[in-house]
Design a protein around this nucleic acid. Sequence first.
DNA 1: CGGAACGTTGAGTTCGGTCAATGCATGTGG
DNA 2: CCACATGCATTGACCGAACTCAACGTTCCG
Lengths: 229, 229
Amino acid sequence: MPQKHLVEIRDNPLFASIGAESFAALTRGAYVQNFPPHTELITEGEAADFLHIVSTGCVELFSIWQGRETSMSFQTENSTFILAATIKDLPYLMSARTITKSRVIMIPSQDIRGVFERDSMFAKSIVSELATCYRNAIKTAKNIKLRTSLERLANYILKLHLAQGGRIELELAVEKRRIASFLGMTPENLSRSFAGLKSHGVEMDGQVIKVVDAAKLEEFAHPNALIDG
Amino acid sequence: MPQKHLVEIRDNPLFASIGAESFAALTRGAYVQNFPPHTELITEGEAADFLHIVSTGCVELFSIWQGRETSMSFQTENSTFILAATIKDLPYLMSARTITKSRVIMIPSQDIRGVFERDSMFAKSIVSELATCYRNAIKTAKNIKLRTSLERLANYILKLHLAQGGRIELELAVEKRRIASFLGMTPENLSRSFAGLKSHGVEMDGQVIKVVDAAKLEEFAHPNALIDG
DNA sequence: CGGAACGTTGAGTTCGGTCAATGCATGTGG
DNA sequence: CCACATGCATTGACCGAACTCAACGTTCCG
């Protein structure tokens, strides 16, 4: 593995504080690979042979049941995915596909479990990452169960707005159909919901969303640290 | 703390394989307490001062947003809850209340984090528990997003049926209103859904559910290891 | 210049929620 | 013991949110 890639992996918070020996053990069998958009990386139900880490780009996690598909989350820079399956040596619960051209680090699950046993710093990182993922899953469930689709969209836009430092004009990173699925609605309904947010300080023109009145949007969205934080 | 309680804690899988020293450190500041039904144990947003473990009884985890409440899960014997908050030293994302009379073990979060650092066996248990909880949360989200309310109920009953070794007559452990909330529907709709399952091999009479044709129910429910497993 | 995929819009339908009334069980106080 | 209150489950009528289906416009790409 080229030095460039090693540095790349090292930069990931998950590996930042582990020992040199552990790092070597983790990277010995690792791959770094570039994938074109719309490439299925893993399929739910398969054995979790590798831990995946998005280095650059964007990966969608999704699930299918009885022909119905739903977007579960979008992973960008430095996100791990399917960590729980790797740790427990159980099948993936979700499938993953690239949305944009993406570079992905893959580390054999076996090595992860091995280093986990020996390196307590790494174990700590893993636990921290797992706990964060778990909390995010809980937040997702609360979001879906407690809010209407319009409220979910309002909070989604508000979050984007804040993440981009309060910028007025927002560009959506992923297709609307996927956002719709992520938010638990149909593309048609997302279109209508965007229109419905006009009276709450959001204007839309094609791919560009304008948060013209953030206070008004926030008043409607009622963001909450225990769901959106 | 009485010997009886120590044995009780020891029996929990989370503490089964840890060293004597670690065990002593964990139990030094621990409480074991009995609570009557319908007692709120923790409130979302509060600091995670204790890890809670249900020793006997049943505890409901729920969340509230804008006056709307939803049941997130039911915890019975040997279940931990709010482990992620304890580990990360962050506020609880859910509230908890007893449903039945319950005995609960409470261990100061600080002690959990301390022993976690020193005892790798304990760290392993924690990670395993966390990963399991995480996977359950993912399954919950998939269940809600991919299934209709009738399908969710069908799978819920089927799961009960199988958990009780294929018994025909099932008794619901918790009130229907809470099951309804857990399944993401109103009590009224749950009533109607029960009626709707008549044509799929389920009969209902008050508190007693009869799975008269498990094959028929399964054919409708399409249970899946990646959601229900 | 098609053709494909996506987004939008409209019409109609369905699923699930709201509201209200009733029945039923439990519990309390006279 | 009964009268009454309370809380849950059920049922019906109604309503609203979201989905389906279909048509159409746009963009992107071969």
